[in-house]
């Protein structure tokens, strides 16, 4: 089985992102990029399927600029992916949805697979649109928010779960197709030291931006116009109190009379 797993570099969780001076984009200078959490689950899921079905090949694919693209692919290789492809993005602006889908579809046509896996959404924009849009672009069945992807007993059919309102639905899924993962069957593994060293020496295939199909003439693209920081929080107020009961009374009074949280 051939599996393509799409991974996205996102700023590390503790990063404090700021807009550039002109407010047109986020300043990513010196920001560390890591494999997006849901994509990490997609990689884990691909590796679990590979372990369950010997002979399976897993290729990690990313679309973006250097060096964060290579870094995130090296992480995927260190975790156990067999190959990696970097679809180069034009520098300057962050790719929007249709550019991303066009690029990932181009990679999918170059490396045809039975299964296309990715996180249900990225941890930076949290838009959650790529899995469905990519399935549409490839003309394949697609689903999103899948949990615990697995083969059924016959090893012919893929199954997954989806959590809905406290219930778990079990689904069967025809291949080829595109699945957005919410969670793998296990927590994502950590890369072993030796594999990290080996991954540094593995080749990364490159699809240059010039090889991507030209943008289709359409109604235009949706791009963010302006980035601003949320207003700074105003100072906290410390309540002087003599006992916990006193503190509670004073807090309720402030919430009612000053903050007007309740009448």
């Amino acid at each position: 089985m051939q599996i393509l797993v799409f991974v996205k570099p996102v700023p590390e969780a503790e990063t404090r992102l700021r807009p550039t001076a002109d407010g047109r984009r986020l300043d990513t200078d010196g920001v560390k990029f890591v494999l997006s959490g849901y994509d990490e689950s997609a990689v884990e899921q691909a590796l679990l399927l590979k372990e369950a079905l010997p002979g399976t090949q897993v290729r990690a694919v990313t679309f973006g600029t250097s060096p964060r693209s290579e870094e995130v692919l090296r992480s995927a290789l260190a975790l156990g992916c067999d190959a990696a492809t970097w679809v180069e993005a034009p520098t300057g602006s962050e790719p929007e949805l249709r550019e991303t889908v066009r690029a990932l579809a181009a990679a999918s046509r170059k490396f045809p697979a039975e299964l296309y896996l990715l996180g249900q959404q990225s941890l930076d924009t949290e838009a959650g649109m790529v899995p469905t849009a990519l399935a549409a672009a490839l003309g394949l069945p697609g689903t999103n928010g899948a949990v615990n992807l697995r083969f059924d007993g016959s090893r012919q059919l893929l199954c997954f779960d989806r959590e809905r309102g406290g219930e778990i639905e079990s689904w069967e899924f025809p291949v080829p197709g595109v699945i957005g993962l919410k969670q793998a069957a296990n927590d994502p593994r950590a890369a072993k030291l030796q594999n990290i060293l080996k991954s540094r020496k593995l080749p990364i295939d490159r699809i240059p931006a010039s090889e991507l199909p030209a943008a289709v003439a359409d109604a235009g693209t949706v791009r963010p116009a302006l980035f601003t920081l949320p207003p700074a929080r105003t100072g906290a107020k410390l309540i002087e109190y003599t006992s916990p009961e006193d503190a509670a009374h004073k807090l309720v009074r402030i919430l009612r009379e000053e903050a007007k949280v309740f009448p």
């Binding site: 090296r74 260190a78 950590a190 890369a191 030291l193 990290i196 060293l197 540094r200």
Partner: peptide
């Protein structure tokens, strides 16, 4: 080197 940075990163994460 890149290898050293990635080893350090791995140990930091662990």
């Amino acid at each position: 080197t890149e290898e050293q940075s990635s080893l350090r990163e791995m140990a930091r994460k662990f």
